[in-house]
Design a protein around this nucleic acid. Sequence first.
DNA 1: ATGGTTCGTTCCGCAAACGGAACGATTGCG
DNA 2: CGCAATCGTTCCGTTTGCGGAACGAACCAT
Lengths: 180, 180
Amino acid sequence: MNGRDTDIGSRLRRLREARGISLSALARSAGIGKATLSGLELGTRNPTLETLYAVAGALGLPLTALVLEPGAPPTEAVHVPGAAVTATLLEVFEEPTATFELLRMRVRPGIVQHSPPHAPGVTEHVTVHAGVLRAGPADAPLLAAPGEHISWQADVPHIYSTVGPDEALATLLIRSPRQA
Amino acid sequence: MNGRDTDIGSRLRRLREARGISLSALARSAGIGKATLSGLELGTRNPTLETLYAVAGALGLPLTALVLEPGAPPTEAVHVPGAAVTATLLEVFEEPTATFELLRMRVRPGIVQHSPPHAPGVTEHVTVHAGVLRAGPADAPLLAAPGEHISWQADVPHIYSTVGPDEALATLLIRSPRQA
DNA sequence: ATGGTTCGTTCCGCAAACGGAACGATTGCG
DNA sequence: CGCAATCGTTCCGTTTGCGGAACGAACCAT
């Protein structure tokens, strides 16, 4: 069937489960059939570019995050999950016990960006470089000035916003343990 | 046919013609049909991942080169003598197969900081937030402006310095595989 | 238990991506 | 001028990716 396996299936499954999204839900939000997504993750289908775009878009990821391959140059693509936060996926590290996603984040002032809870065990680590960031669990956000670093468990609803009139720049490292 | 055009077709055609390869020849060396490649370039087909890999491989390109517009070429390198890096260790992640160290870095202008080679397999990943950073292998440093991201193998002597009069702020993620 | 919900997989008819073979157009050579 | 070779496109039968529906398993509340 698939001569060389491109290993997209297992990576996709990890990315999906790291976000705590069910296969059915992802298929629904991507506008594709469950059968398609299931076959894609199991590696029994040879997906179409259109299908890949739909899935990547629903995950809020650039297509390159799905098709990452050894030797490929670090890819930089912009995704916009919401209004206030613009994030750029810089690197994805696949470790046996965890997946690390390194992103650069820009938070516009005056808006509060809400993010749904991720899977249990997921932690987020933010280093602020410019502006004052207010981020963390929605019921107990943390403050970070330039040079400071904050982190929190991301398995609860959390927010991102700025303090003051300036936008904030930061790096975001998301650690998703395999198997919650 | 294809609701949103992904613009892969025209990019592929440019890449192919830039190499002076005919459609027939590329199809032959990729092991796919001429009809498939023609339809792909014209945008009348929705290619399969397998097809994309075949074409990218025949062009000697990573798949990401087909899917993503190559980033802007690095600007002209400017040489600045001098050196000094202040780094703050923010987090350490101990994984079974690798250790990740997350640092925040401040590079003062006018000096070139030299760093001895690390163990084989160690990679460094830098995201610049302010200033222009010049870093990487001592014999082939890379340039990064704010917002840009660079990475390199750290098992050779490498350097950090700035370009221009301003200091540079960045995050540094060091990935060290266990046992090298 | 029992009905209801959601999970991921499998079955199946349909649409479409696939490669081979034609096609007309263009080029190069005798 | 033939005439062969190659170009990129189009036609066509086969293969296969597609989504909807049905499936068994797991979970929850009653």
